[in-house]
């Protein structure tokens, strides 16, 4: 697969779950034009949805009067998405890897989003920057499909 070139784009969304459809559309179109196949586009879009859902529910605790930014920086084989918020900081090391059976018992879906992001992307990194938090997601274009 070959990338179609360089992409630098960003968009700000309201911190409400009704914004998720717009986030997916934004990422979907750019991942597709970068050269990913349908399966990879779906996976990248899902990972970004999970990152944004975490921002809406946890960083901003459901407050819709706030915003977050989704930035796409892609070149060569690297497709990078940065989700930035100005809410409560997040410590991914405090989120345990979910034991699915255990989660069923406890009726808890928390942690599944991060688990999925890590499964679907090549890199998932969190960092605090000034008063903001960033999650950086990277997926590389490659010949063989990731399973």
């Amino acid at each position: 697969m070959k990338s179609s070139g360089k992409i630098e784009d960003s968009k700000v969304f309201k911190s409400t779950t009704s914004a998720l459809a717009g986030v997916r559309e934004f990422v979907n179109e750019r991942a597709l034009s970068f050269g990913f196949g349908d399966k990879e586009v779906s996976e990248i879009t899902l990972a970004v949805d999970e990152a944004c859902t975490n921002v809406i529910k946890h960083a901003y605790k459901g407050n819709p009067d706030t915003e977050f930014e989704v930035k796409i920086l892609a070149s060569g084989a690297e497709f990078q998405i940065v989700v930035r918020d100005w809410g409560a900081s997040f410590k991914p090391e405090e989120v345990p890897v979910p034991n699915i059976k255990d989660r069923f018992k406890k009726h808890k879906a928390g942690g599944l989003g991060i688990f999925l992001m890590r499964k679907l992307m090549d890199t998932v990194e969190y960092q605090g920057k000034d008063a903001s938090n960033e999650v950086r997601l990277v997926r590389y274009l490659r010949n063989e499909q990731k399973t």
Binding site: L20, R24, T53, R103, A109, G113, L116
Partner: peptide, 16 residues
Amino acid sequence: NYISSAGLGVFMAYID
């Protein structure tokens, strides 16, 4: 057409 972990969580919540 689409499901995220929030949707999966609902099935987990009721199975027991």
